[in-house]
Design a protein around this nucleic acid. Sequence first.
RNA 1: GCUGACGUAGCUCAGUUGGUAGAGCACAUCCUUGGUAAGGAUGAGGUCACCGGUUCAAUCCCGGUCGUCAGCUCCA
Length: 643
Amino acid sequence: MNTITVTFPDGNSKEFEAGLSAFEIAKSISRNLAEDAVAVKINGVVKELHTVLNDSATVQFLTFEDAEGKHVYWHSTSHLMAHAIQSLWPEARFGVGPAIETGFYYDFDINTKLTEDDLRTIEAKMMELSKQNQSFVRSELSKADALEYFGKVQDPYKVEIISEIDETAEAISLYKEGDFTDLCVGPHLPSAGKIKFVRLLTVSGSYWRGDEKRKQLQRIYGISFPKKKPLDDYIAFLEEAKKRDHRKLGKQLDLFSIHEEAGAGLIYWHPKGSMIRLQIENFWREAHMANGYELLYTPHVGKSWLWETSGHLDFYKDSMYSGMKIDEQDYYVKPMNCPFHIMIYETKLRSYRDLPLRWAELGTVYRYEKSGVLHGLMRVRGFTQDDAHIFCAQEQIGDEIKEVIRFAKYVWDAFGFKELKYYLSTRPEKAVAGNDELWAKATSALENAMKDMGIDYEVDDGGGAFYGPKIDIKIKDALNREWQMSTIQFDFNMSARFNMTYIGEDGKEHQPFMVHRALLGSIERFFGVLIEHYAGAFPMWLAPVQVVVAPISQNFLEYAKSVTEQLRAAGLRVELDESNEKIGFKIRRSETDKVPYTVVVGEKEQASESISVRKHKVGDQGAFPISDFIAKLQVEINNKIVN
RNA sequence: GCUGACGUAGCUCAGUUGGUAGAGCACAUCCUUGGUAAGGAUGAGGUCACCGGUUCAAUCCCGGUCGUCAGCUCCA
């Protein structure tokens, strides 16, 4: 009998008989391991649990806790869902059904339009099938046989996929689970019984192969878990996200509105929202001035010459607000600020001594976004970019990029976002501007800046804009969701089209490098993310109302007014609750408004010239002299403390 | 833009299988002057998104438009 050596991730190894399956090996080690394992990694490749080992190998058992294990688990769940759909609607034809980062989906073609209720029916069917605990069985066919098989079951989608597989490819694999057979590379769970808790989330349309010219199939998204607790946690997470939805909180807290009769995707900032925005902008301006930027203001419209020169009328006319005639000339609302900054650059002959120029503007732009993509503050038609353009000489690009990254980190830190992720996007196929040399220099400037700063980054090969490479920065919010916010992009297109130059040390004309960067992205979207991040409970420095003063009864209104005046004199944003309500009601109102502090004053406080302080979500803090309270709040504001 | 769902008072929602509507909160007035998350009474408030069609009659059925929501596609 042959023996093989199996090495485990912890470095230990053990002898086994050849010909045992990974599952049997797991069982011999621990019953729990065999129970929890969903797949196995043999010599670094993910395989099914019943894969037979004939040679010595490194073996790592994957459970649902591993990302790769989850992937297998969810992929098998998508098959189980397709199986359930096929049982319920036998005419169903299937597109693709992969696992995704959180869960899975499957695209399919059936005559019925599914509703939320149907999702519950499908879930029930899946549970019924799971109880049958059928194995996932792999089989392999030649391309011709596979085509014949799916031709016979008349699935045009699978036939299309198979017909595109390379002739020279090895056998095509199918997976059968019960009476459902699917084209699939695997790997899968040993059997469907491992799928214990399933939640189907949404049903919607999706284009076959992502092509908007082709048929729209129905797609169901779902997620599944081997235990109940993580499913409950996930549902709780979804509910928490729903509670924090900036559209809901924006209404509740009276921050902003959108008016269908006045135009979709256009934001109205209410007094409280405006106050928060003012704080954001004040910080932004001061930070820029303190970090080597100069501030600009530029117009909102420009003549067609500008947009012809910039190329926007060629590339983006469909998403520009249509032109308006003024004095027989076509003017367009600006979709970008860059051309305006360039106009300022070109008002005089620039010398290398002037560079780098760092010009920043909170520039409001308008872009036509398709009606179906608008989403609260996150995707709008009119928004204010926290834009800046850096014009510099080639030898300065490395330092400039580093400086932008350092500054971006500083700004995100101030808003309470500590975790940033960096992505480098390189030259795409569709690149039309710049030559090989420019792309190479700019790309390495971006890459080296991150390397020098010890920053980990991922590379999105070919993900750059057509006019230059870029770094994108994503942030993680309080619910661990990622948002793409900052972008640092080289632009070879504008500088060339506007024929920008500076006179170098050598007395000759050179084309400056142009870097386009936005940190917050758009103020609107940033505000949306901020609302959700803080769940509407803004830290003191941003809170539109920092303190509510609530007298116990009308008898103490005069004292309450005096307290309010003192707090306002210290620069705090204070509201006095003069309403003829009980203190309990006033407290409730300031709590639901998420005001950081509520100051209660009555007979006691008036007598001792003090105030009682209640902190949002925490409760009564007891009595303080007013000056102590002011000093404490000023520390909180100045240090941008997040509670 | 595409597929589907949806649009009733300022907000959150009931309701009418076709006979023009209701609650809670918010708002106004009055009573109450109360110590840490909702005191009481009364009142006002709606062209049932908009435009057409069918019908004796449309908020309800049909068509279109606008908008919202979940995705898809897109995002300089």
